[in-house]
Design a protein around this nucleic acid. Structure first.
Lengths: 332, 332
DNA sequence: AGGCGATGCCGGAACGTTCCGGCAAGACCC
DNA sequence: GGGTCTTGCCGGAACGTTCCGGCATCGCCT
């Protein structure tokens, strides 16, 4: 648009009547600069609309100014990951970093980034394994179950949450809860399963688990639910781990002549719009995905800045949201 | 990890026994280099695992090596946008560019990118308006309805698609179709509305439109649907524009004692997992979001490379997917 | 044989920033 | 009043790449 030469540090320095070094120091509050000079420089920069050139800065600093993010491209959980991504973007922007999305595509180059975030790293995913071996500082959301360890981990206590959920179901009258969950590719699924098994052992309940793949389709989930509900004695509660699936079981319940919330208590391990919109609305675990993404980014920046030891583990809180689908028959 | 000095162009040149200029020319197939020398350099680079330093390259070239993407953060449409984003990422990677997500956050800086993609730009969105005024080459998915024009546009003919959909409904016996759609903030919604109005005028049908905001909640959609279905004479078909909402109308239909697919034909303007999973599955328009994202990116790169004129408009095909929800009573 | 264009290669400067070392000028101490 | 310390500022080099111009060499044409 405007044919004017781009405004650089030198332009600012000239305008303020100082050297480029002083201008640089003033803008970054480093070095030794008097208060007046700093104000002068800041004003000049403001007037000229100076924006530092990232390429030059990163070239000099040997950094890239970007962090990389990889999430499993499982579209059934897209609401969760979308929010997660936005959380990361926002935190990155706050640290003046860009976010580079790492695709599952055929391109095998490791992108030029300062560090990596892997959301729910799948054991066995070739991209994840390559990234883990890249030598770059890495933070994972949930633990990586394969070989190697990330420099930072943000975890939630899904096992404990499952205990809490089962306590709630029991309080509402359910004594034979069943679970639909994926295998051990992710730490998330493994934690849920462990929490369930432990609770069952503690309460002398039979463990009834329908195992599905991580990227399960709604049809498959329904088939598994059908099988579980045909068992004798029939479960009186059903917990669905895969995102969104709990809201897709209406046909199965109708077939079996069951009413969610009374005949069968229904709960989901992942909150989302379809849980709120279901009829009846479904009790679910709010994983606070946006905050989780931000927490991963913050941890990565702390590690990059030397403010957190490699090997740090931080806990991210999650929350049980109780809705009509687990009302039960108990007096309210 | 490895304490070795990073391998630069100079390292490669030394190894190949040539100057840095020749090495650079050989790797980029520019300048004048003999075939043997080129092979020599390529081999040296390969052996050393040379990766060009983006910052240095972009500093020299006055480019950034990244494109920016902004999408409305409307979580009910997240499946669509998630796929769109992945399409853009993949195309960008193919052109060796990174993708910077532009957040709606308070940070007002225009990111350092070579060009911008705006998916479904909302008229009145302050970020969109700022980006449009940034002077950067810009491609929008669907037209921008506010002031200013993008350098490239990727459009789909939603108006024609609505005609096609209405023809289909009529063929299946519906003569009083109603529409739920957002206002004119996006070109997408405006196109749908226009297509509907035109078809109604053409066929002498009454136009029954329920207007909702772009980021409508499922509850609001239901309320509008309830109103529309209470009208006299009652519509015999309902087209829902907002993503996902058509799959959330079951309670409303039950209340009214209607069966989707026979008493009331139901269709959605946005395909998604919940349409496939609904009972009965819902007829929907597949917007091919991944391909749309890729098309936007390709157009942007063509403009950046001078291979497309500013002002180019490309058409992106969309597709009607017919399912049980519009079976009707006509013989099949 | 002399001129001339093409070919293959190279040195050096430039991109805009950060940072190391240095240099005045004043403050402070004995 | 001569030494040392601090403060405020600055010049120049460096980061790794691209690109302009230049310099040989060689073959071709007259």
């Amino acid at each position: 648009m405007s044919p004017t030469r781009p405004v650089t540090l030198l332009t600012v320095a000239e305008r303020a009547g100082v050297s480029k070094t002083t201008a640089s120091d003033a803008l970054r509050s480093s070095g030794r600069v008097s208060a007046e000079t700093r104000a002068l420089v800041l004003e000049a920069a403001e007037q000229l609309g100076y924006v530092p050139n990232g390429s030059a800065r990163h070239l000099r600093r040997a950094s890239t100014g970007a962090i990389g993010l990889h999430v499993p491209e499982v579209l059934t959980r897209s609401d969760y990951y979308m929010r997660f991504v936005f959380g990361v973007v926002e935190a990155a922007a706050a640290h003046d970093h860009d976010l580079t999305l790492i695709t599952s595509g055929p391109s095998s180059r490791v992108p030029r980034v300062d560090g990596l975030i892997l959301g729910d790293p799948l054991d066995g995913d070739p991209i994840v394994e390559r990234l883990m071996r890249s030598g770059l500082p890495t933070v994972t959301g949930e633990r990586f179950r394969g070989d190697g360890e990330a420099d930072g981990v943000v975890v939630s206590d899904h096992a404990a949450m499952l205990g809490e959920m089962l306590d709630h179901l029991r309080e509402r009258g359910a004594i034979r809860p069943a679970l639909i969950v994926a295998g051990g590719e992710t730490d998330w699924a493994a934690g849920i399963r462990r929490g369930y098994e432990e609770w069952c052992a503690r309460h002398g309940a039979a463990s009834v688990v329908g195992a599905v793949p991580f990227d399960v389709s709604y049809d498959e989930t329904r088939a598994v639910a059908r099988t579980l509900l045909a068992a004798e004695p029939r479960p009186d509660a059903l917990i669905c781990a895969p995102a969104g699936s709990a809201a897709q079981l209406q046909p199965v319940l109708s077939e079996a002549g069951l009413q969610a919330g009374t005949d069968l208590l229904l709960a989901s391990c992942v909150e989302g719009p379809s849980m709120r919109a279901a009829d009846p609305p479904v009790t679910a675990v709010d994983l606070h995905p946006r905050e989780a993404g931000a927490a991963c980014a913050e941890l990565l920046f702390d590690i990059l800045g030397g403010e957190a030891e490699p090997g740090t583990e931080r806990v991210h809180p999650i929350e049980l949201i109780i809705r009509e689908s687990t009302r039960g028959n108990a007096p309210r």
